[in-house]
Amino acid sequence: MNFFQSLAAVLTPVGLLWTVIILGIAVTLHELAHYALARWQGVPVKSFSVGMGPVLWRRRWKGTEWRVSALPLGGYVEIDGMAPVQGADGQMHAPTGGYAALPSLGKIAVILAGPVMNLLLALGLMTLLFTNQGMPVQDRARIEEVVVNSTAQKIGLKNGDVITAIDGRDIPETLTIDGKEAPGWQAVPETLKQAGPHTFTILRQGQAQDIRFDWTPTLNGKKQLLGIRYGPDVQKVGVGQAFTTSVKSTVEVVPQVIQSFGNLFKRFLTLDLSQDQNVSGPIGTAEIVSRAAALGPWALVQIAIMLNLSLAFFNLIPIPGLDGGRILLTLIGAIKGSPLTFAQENAINFAGFAFVMLLMMFVILRDASRFF
């Protein structure tokens, strides 16, 4: 099987379409937030493009040329005073008007607006997801399927049963497994590692009852399976609690995101092409979306949440060429009492942009390498 056949095996036309839609909306709203904060402060915006590359359609409205470009991923906004301008001597000079004339806080507001928009979109989608699909309850395990003729069926477990306690002890919110914190509902497989009598306290149609059984983890050298598919219980919540939980979940994921990006930079600097499930390139993203598309709309909503969070956090990394880098340069200028010189800022931005491009090429290469 060659490279393209391998790609076709994991990507679907519907998945690719949804990848374009989800990323397109995320990037367009990101750039639209930059546009809105610039215009709000009186800064002209020369152009706004949905997509990249050759322009397919354009129309001038409110002083801005609105474009639709050929490549459906990405987009850009051209804010007056951000790019160098050509002087009468034919040389490029630092801009003096528009964005360049804003105070430091005004500049930061324009740049920060993009990541904040993606963050707000992720929070809104997460709130919608929790409100409509319910919120995971970590201290209860819901049985989603009981295998026919399995031990679970023989001892009386049924689809929809909710395990609330094991061996007379309530399932905790969290527990430690192999030195790592895990959700409490994973106490079920931990319990099944131990031989002997066990008791599951379950809720069935609102009524509590005990299921008692004797368990042997291995028989004749073979690992035994209870015969259930399960996960955290789900609880319906209101919009307020859903939003609060969304904010809490986002804050809790920050250390994991920082660690993932740190691992990515380490792999990049050592040219380590081994796979990392926490960071995906365009091929990996399209593959994940293809799988989600087969599961239904709410799975796609979960992917949209992850992509918007990733876009927000990635853009806030203080590397020149990203929003975080531009904010960092603005803060350095504010602390110094004067902005960096045109030559200094150009050199730093060029180096940062080159680093980001090389990083993107590395991620794409690592993504593709598993198909060779």
Rank of each mutant, 00 (worst) to 15 (best):
L273K: 15
D210W: 05
F371N: 04
A312E: 02
L23T: 04
L121G: 06
M361F: 15
G206K: 07
T12G: 05
V239P: 06
I327P: 03
L307Y: 02
P44T: 03
T201K: 06
I202N: 13
G281L: 00
T245K: 14
A294I: 06
A294C: 00
N349L: 13
A347W: 12
T64M: 01
Q186I: 15
L56I: 05
L226Y: 01
P217C: 11
K236T: 15
K236A: 15
V162I: 09
F314I: 01
N315F: 00
L11K: 08
R58T: 10
S369V: 04
K236I: 08
T270L: 10
F261D: 00
G87P: 11
I283H: 09
G231V: 02
K248W: 14
Q275E: 15
D80G: 04
P136C: 06
A187K: 13
S246C: 07
T245R: 14
I348A: 03
F265P: 00
Q344V: 01
Q224L: 04
G81P: 03
K193F: 03
L123Q: 07
D323R: 01
G75D: 05
T64G: 01
W61V: 06
G97T: 13
G325E: 00
L129R: 04
G333P: 04
P95H: 07
K180T: 13
S290K: 03
A109P: 09
H93T: 08
G114M: 10
L322V: 00
N263W: 09
L32I: 12
A299I: 09
K266H: 13
S69M: 03
K62D: 12
S246L: 02
L120I: 13
V77Q: 03
I283D: 04
S310P: 01
A101N: 07
K46I: 11
V363W: 11
V247R: 03
I163F: 01
T64I: 04
G106F: 12
S69K: 01
V356P: 01
R204W: 07
R60M: 06
G221Q: 07
E173Q: 15
T285C: 03
G53V: 08
L329T: 06
T64E: 02
P72A: 02
L175N: 02
I348R: 00
A113C: 14
L71K: 01
V116W: 11
G24F: 14
F130N: 06
Q344I: 01
A100F: 12
S369C: 05
T151P: 04
I202Q: 09
